[in-house]
Amino acid sequence: MSPLDILAAPDIEERRQWMGTLAKASPDRLDEFWQDLAEKPDYRCLKGPEIGLAMVRGRAGGTGAPFNMGEMSVTRCVVQIVDGQLGYACVAGRSQRHAELAAVFDALLQDDDRRAALKETIISSLDREWRNRRAKRSAKAASTKVEFFTMVRGD
């Protein structure tokens, strides 16, 4: 077995965060950040971007044993910055551009010299935009929350 232990990357939790943010971003938005990037690195794709499926599992009763509920389309890409880090992405949907850019940003974010700036500009913006979208959705749902009141019976 190949060892699949800790990556050299900053720390796994931090990396998981930005990978999730990149996966949930829209491909167009990632492309804008890429266009705006001052020093675009040269990179090559080691794998993909390739479109495939992930089998989505649910849990019986919501909390019980897992079962296969159906598949979703995903796109995977592994890139290497020339003379630099490797980036990985697997994102929902079939946008190859999305997977490629997410992998490139993942690689750049592992660079100690670039991480802080990229997190501040790209990741925090994407994260904020996602939170806003989600808050908007929740606010609309919240407006449909039932406020029960008891009718007082007059004697």
């Binding site: 060892p3 232990d5 800790i6 990556l7 080691l46 490797l86």
Partner: peptide
């Protein structure tokens, strides 16, 4: 080392996957 790290020196796979 993780697999993805060792792959930095990795030889490429098939040129045209399909």
């Amino acid at each position: 080392m993780s697999l993805i790290e060792t792959s930095s020196k990795m030889a490429p796979g098939l040129a045209d996957a399909v």
